[in-house]
Simulated scan of single mutants.
Amino acid sequence: MITRRDFMKLAGGGFASVAALGGYAFAVEPLARLSIVRYRLTPPGWTPGLKLRLVALADLHACEPWMSAERIVSICKRANSLGGDITVLLGDYASSMNFVTRYVHSSEWSRALSTLSAPLGVHAVMGNHDWWEDRTAQMNGGGETFAHRALAGVGIEVHSNRAVRLEKDGFGFWLAGLEDQLALRPGKIWSRRRMTGLDDLDGTLAQVSDDAPVILLAHEPDIFPRVPSRVSLTLSGHTHGGQVRFAGLSPVVPSRFGDRYAYGHIIEEDCHLIVSGGLGCSVAPIRFGVPPEIVVVDLG
C-alpha cells in the first residue's frame, strides 16, 4: 500500500519532470538548437549527370527573443557553409505570436536574410503569415505584401506563380514558386476552409517550356496531391513538423490532411515532397521533438 510520503514523492517527481520538459520545450529547443537535416534522392525523370544541392530555410517567424535579426544572420551563415548550389526560402518571415518582447521589422529580417548567398542565387516564396500580417494586402485582395517588397529590396528573387530556368554545369532545370494557398482571410471569421489562395499551379507550370526537371516551392504542402509527376520535387514548410512531435506523430498539424504531410520526405505515386520542420514558432513559442532545422537536399 502506497504511503502518503511515497505519494508525495511520486507527485513531486512527476511535477519536476513536467516542469523540466516544459522548460526544454519553451527555452531550449526553440532557442538553442539548430539541426541540419539531409536528404539524398534521384527522382524519376531527373537528368542524368545533373547533381544539385539545395539548401532550404522555412518559417522564420522573426520576433524577439525567439528569432532575432542576429539569430537569423547566424542561421544564414550556417546555411552558407553547407555548400548549396541554390538556396530557397519557403515563406513565413513575419511573426504573429503574442508571446514576444518585440516584433522584428521587415527591414531588419530582410537585411539579415541578405547574408545568404549561393552560386545560383537565393529564391523565395511567401507564406500565409506574410499575407495575414499585411492589412493593406488583405484589403486589396492581392498585389504585393511588405514581405515581397522587403525581400526584393535586398536582392532576393521572389516567385509568385512564376517559373525560371536555371543551369548547373550545362544542365538545365526549372525552379517554380507558388503564391500562398491561404493568403486571404475571410474577415473576422477564421476558417481555414474559407481562406482564399492566390496560388496558380497550372499557370505556373505552363511557363515550363522544355523537358528539364522542375523543382516546385509551395509554402503549404497541401497542394501536393495536385502536383503532377512532371514535377521532380516539391519543397514545403508551414507545418513546423507539428511543432510538437512524439514517436513520429504530431497531435496538431495545420493541414487539412492531418499528419500525412506534416514532416519529412513523402513519396506518393512516384512524386516526391519534402516538408521542412522550419526554424521559428507559430501561435506559441514551443518546440518539442522538432528542433529548428536547415534542410539540405542532394539531387542526382
Score class of each variant (00 low, 15 high):
A212H: 15
I223E: 12
E220A: 09
F224P: 01
D222C: 14
L205R: 04
G197I: 04
D199E: 15
A206G: 01
D210T: 08
E220T: 14
A206P: 02
E220M: 07
M195P: 09
R230Q: 06
I223R: 10
R192K: 14
V214H: 05
L198K: 15
L205N: 13
V227C: 02
D210N: 10
P221R: 06
V227M: 03
L216Q: 05
L198A: 02
R193L: 11
T196W: 02
V231A: 09
V214L: 14
D200G: 06
L217G: 00
H219F: 02
D200W: 13
F224L: 09
F224C: 05
F224H: 04
R230G: 15
I215E: 02
R226L: 06
P225Q: 03
L205Y: 13
R192V: 09
L217W: 01
L198S: 08
D200T: 13
R226F: 05
D199A: 15
A212M: 14
P228L: 01
P213M: 08
L201A: 11
V208K: 05
A212R: 10
P228K: 04
A212S: 12
D202N: 11
A212F: 12
P228A: 00
D200R: 14
V227L: 15
T196N: 03
D210C: 10
R193I: 13
F224Q: 09
